[in-house]
Amino acid sequence: MASAIEQPEIAAAAAAADPMLPALYSIQRVRQETDDTFTLELVPEDSHSSFGFRPGQFNMVYIFGVGEVPISISSDPGSLPMLKHTTREVGTVTRAMRQLKRGDVVGIRGPYGSCWPVAKAVERDVVIVAGGIGLAPLRPALYRLMAEREKFRKIVLLYGTRTPEDILYRQELEHWRGKFDLEIQVTVDRAASNWRGNVGVVTTLIPRAPFDPSNTFALVCGPEVMMRFTVMELEKRGVATERIYLSAERNMKCGIGFCGHCQLGAVFVCKDGPVFALNQIAAILGKSEI
């Protein structure tokens, strides 16, 4: 179907070879981010790797004999060939991943899928709304925005998570807040009294966040319910539907449109998404069991 979003070009070589064969990457480090979230830091075994990606894209990450799962890329596109994947321990594969040590080898296929419309947001305000681990696929977009900070107007990150202990990339956020002209507002669902920040869902930050709704691109990623409420608040604030982008999540077995698992109405999340312009999926957003 006609796609309204920036689609990365797929390298002809990558498409021609067997797309189901992974490339090998070795673990440099497994970094515990929060209680249940960690980041794999990977470098390619092949020193001539020409891997490149755009913010918002994902890889299929294979653990020897255990399985393969889609995980968004959360590293800086400017710091290749290092790749970082932040994920939560939620299933067999991610649990096995958590046990990996420096030097262990994993398989990587990708990058797959669509990307955040960073280029389109030039000369505009950008509001990034992240919920929980939804910050991970947005981090490469933040790197890009920071790398070319002068090209954009206001950049606002609204980040909601469960508790203060669940805040991802804390040091980096502090660093960015100090170094760049970046407004960061964090809120948590619940906190002990010693938390001096906001408590409340992330949508409560939207009405008063400092951006000009008539000239804003909104990039949203988080649990589906959170994204639906966020969209409502953004629209209430006056952000145009066609400038709201979401990243969707579905079961995936192949990443390239062959396995059928990631169908969401008339789109494949793996190749039409994961980043969608809201108007691509607005009609089915919030419908039960689609």
């Binding site: 929980g132 669902d189 619940r190 988080g222 649990p223």
Partner: peptide
């Protein structure tokens, strides 16, 4: 509305 969303505990 915000409280209801909080109740959903969407972050798992």
């Amino acid at each position: 509305e915000a409280t209801r969303m909080q109740l959903l505990d969407v972050y798992g």
